[in-house]
Computed example of a mutant assay.
Amino acid sequence: MAGHPATSAANELLVAYRHDIHKLTGDAHDHADDMFAGVPVNDPVPHGADSDAAALSRPAGQPQQTVEAHGSHYRLSLCTGRSQRETITGSDPEATIRELVTESDPEADHRAWLTNAVVSAFNESVYYPYTSLKYHTLLVGALVDNYCAGHGFDELALVVDPGDTLVPYRTIYTDERFCLRISPAATCEDRPYARLGSHPHRSWATTWQRLPAHPLATDTDQWARVLDTNLRRIRSWSTALQYLDDVRDGGAWQ
């Protein structure tokens, strides 16, 4: 499990959590400000972690608009098909951005990204509106932490932890029933895990299917079986994780 990083690693993690702030402010990358609230933002992520995380959720090559009538950074819900702009009506997105950007402790920033609902309203690419900026950012942070520790992508695995278990930087999804993280397979023999493979690609469905023990009660719960079936169809990592998030917050598990 990850410990508190050294100073240089801490800076790299903060870069990871701040690298796509321009998508929250609605700016194109080429014209985005390099500062927000006096803090550097929108910087390149070290170790190629941004492009690797993008490959987990988006197809390679020149992006194409997949939903013709939708060209904004507001995410489309896989549950309802509706824009998530309405979910942040009455909130203060700028205050949320300021809170995320000005946090100087990467461990606290990781927790903030995990629990923040406002950032769930945004996609990671206007071309792929069902993707999630929140979970793309968490994947980037997890990869940066693993790469900083000397682990290659081909060593990594999706690991299932007990509910409300938070491993700094590496946990990418959390709720009261189970948590998911990205860690080296060699360190996870006491937990159910499935390797990510030799290179990053849209492998959520196949990785989820290879877990030796599933966190959903598919043997006894009909809704869990439906949820599991849907998760076995989604290839994009950020889309699948956000789908879990939406279902959880929608109360469908209660």
Score class of each variant (00 low, 15 high):
103 E>I: 15
83 S>R: 10
95 A>D: 14
71 G>Y: 02
110 H>N: 04
68 E>R: 15
99 E>Q: 14
95 A>W: 09
53 A>F: 09
110 H>E: 03
88 I>N: 01
104 S>E: 07
87 T>M: 09
54 A>Y: 08
80 T>Q: 00
114 L>V: 13
45 V>S: 00
76 L>G: 03
48 G>V: 11
54 A>T: 15
66 T>P: 07
68 E>Y: 08
76 L>T: 12
60 A>F: 08
59 P>A: 00
47 H>N: 12
57 S>C: 08
58 R>H: 13
80 T>I: 06
73 H>M: 08
71 G>P: 05
45 V>M: 06
97 I>A: 00
81 G>W: 06
71 G>F: 01
113 W>Y: 01
93 P>R: 09
83 S>A: 14
69 A>K: 14
51 S>R: 15
89 T>Q: 11
47 H>A: 12
109 D>V: 15
79 C>D: 12
59 P>V: 10
45 V>T: 09
53 A>M: 11
107 E>I: 11
82 R>A: 13
53 A>I: 14
92 D>R: 11
65 Q>G: 02
89 T>K: 07
47 H>K: 10
61 G>H: 03
102 T>V: 11
86 E>K: 14
114 L>R: 08
104 S>D: 02
70 H>P: 02
87 T>E: 07
101 V>A: 04
44 P>H: 09
100 L>K: 00
114 L>Y: 04
114 L>Q: 03
69 A>D: 11
109 D>E: 12
58 R>E: 15
62 Q>T: 15
93 P>E: 02
76 L>E: 05
48 G>C: 09
97 I>Q: 01
77 S>E: 09
106 P>M: 00
102 T>A: 01
75 R>F: 06
78 L>M: 09
63 P>Q: 03
52 D>Y: 12
109 D>G: 10
106 P>C: 01
71 G>N: 14
80 T>L: 04
92 D>H: 08
98 R>M: 05
97 I>G: 02
71 G>V: 06
66 T>L: 12
69 A>Y: 13
104 S>N: 04
95 A>C: 09
53 A>H: 06
107 E>Y: 00
93 P>D: 03
98 R>L: 06
76 L>N: 03
94 E>D: 09
47 H>V: 06
62 Q>L: 15
87 T>D: 10
102 T>L: 01
82 R>Q: 12
52 D>H: 12
69 A>G: 15
44 P>K: 00
47 H>L: 14
80 T>Y: 01
90 G>P: 04
105 D>I: 12
74 Y>T: 14
103 E>R: 15
79 C>F: 06
83 S>P: 09
72 S>A: 15
46 P>R: 00
94 E>T: 11
97 I>N: 00
56 L>P: 10
49 A>F: 01
61 G>P: 07
43 D>W: 02
97 I>P: 02
79 C>S: 10
106 P>S: 00
76 L>W: 07
65 Q>H: 08
50 D>M: 12
87 T>R: 10
51 S>M: 12
93 P>Q: 12
47 H>P: 02
82 R>I: 10
89 T>R: 07
86 E>Y: 05
99 E>K: 10
60 A>I: 08
82 R>T: 14
45 V>Q: 00
88 I>M: 08
69 A>W: 09
50 D>E: 12
68 E>P: 01
61 G>N: 01
71 G>R: 14
90 G>A: 03
58 R>P: 06
101 V>N: 02
66 T>D: 05
109 D>H: 11
95 A>L: 14
106 P>A: 03
